[in-house]
């Protein structure tokens, strides 16, 4: 599904390297958690996967379903089945939620050789998927993310994920700022969307989210490198001991 090989990246026009040789292999249906302290490069990795401007890839490659991901525009990546749930979803005043999503869904469908959804089928789909994360159906007439609470914004991201049915979803700190109820709703939504064909990369600072979304693999990112990988127990150990023991380990290694 996804294969990252020796990825080095820096912020455009800056010398400082943020990612210093990432290697990661995500198979179909797997859930990988990437944990790490602030400034370790987690969000940079998410941004680079989705194709955000402003980064320079100095070395390495990313292969997605057999294609060179780095060659694709952000919209092309999305149509190929990559989805990023934003840490800070952007408010789009004046852009109507259902117009936006209908356009997005039909772009993806067209790419997959499927017919456009009719207005009726689209509304039906919206209603069904909004239910997954307990979103008020009236949101369809609102502007995208505008005036949404923090929790609503995150739920809206998972709702969009459900609408677009990607092959690989990258959740960038989807748990940050959520109270326990919202966290449960978001996690329930994600769990219902898990399938043998769909993979997840869950980026998080805290282990809390992983109580609800059980990962197959946990990777620890420190200073631009994955310094440790393991099963879900690794997350628990991190919760207990913090990141310092890993950093020391990394230095020793």
């Amino acid at each position: 599904m996804l294969e990252i090989t020796n990825l080095h990246a820096s912020i455009e026009d800056e010398e400082k390297e943020i990612l210093k040789g990432i290697n990661l292999r995500v198979g179909a249906g797997e859930v990988h958690a990437i944990m790490g302290p602030n400034g370790s490069g987690k969000s940079t990795l998410a941004s680079i996967l989705a194709g955000r401007d402003g980064y320079e890839i100095t070395q390495g490659s990313i292969n997605f379903e057999g294609d060179d991901l780095l060659e694709m525009d952000p919209d092309e990546r999305a149509r190929e089945g990559l989805f990023l749930a934003f840490q800070y979803p952007v408010e789009l005043p004046g852009v109507n939620m259902s117009t936006f999503l209908r356009h997005a869904v039909n772009s993806v469908r067209e790419h997959r050789g499927q017919d456009e959804l009719s207005a009726v089928d689209f509304l039906k789909l919206m209603k069904e998927k909004a239910g997954l994360v307990h979103l008020d159906p009236s949101l369809k007439s609102r502007a995208v993310n505008e005036g949404f609470s923090g929790g609503e914004k995150k739920r809206s991201e998972i709702f969009q994920l459900a609408m677009l049915e990607p092959k690989l979803a990258v959740l960038d700190e989807t748990d940050s700022g959520l109270d326990i109820d919202a966290l449960r709703i978001v996690s329930d939504g994600v769990n219902q969307l898990r399938s043998p064909e769909r993979s997840f990369v869950v980026i998080t600072h805290y282990q809390r989210l992983l109580d609800y979304i059980t990962p197959d693999f946990v990777h620890v990112l420190v200073d631009g490198r994955i310094v440790k990988s393991g099963g879900k127990d690794l997350a628990l150990k991190l919760e207990e001991l913090g990141y310092d023991w890993i950093k020391e380990d990394a230095v020793v290694a």
Binding site: A50, P74, L92, G94, T99, F100, S107, H111, L164
Partner: peptide, 30 residues
């Protein structure tokens, strides 16, 4: 034009020219 907004729309599969148009129409709408 807000680059973050443009990226957000593109990240949902909407082509750049269509995303740009969507944002400009939204800007003019009020």
């Amino acid at each position: 034009l807000d680059k973050d907004a443009l990226f957000y729309l593109q990240a949902r599969g909407i082509r750049q020219d269509a995303a740009r148009l969507m944002l400009l129409e939204a800007f003019a709408s009020d």
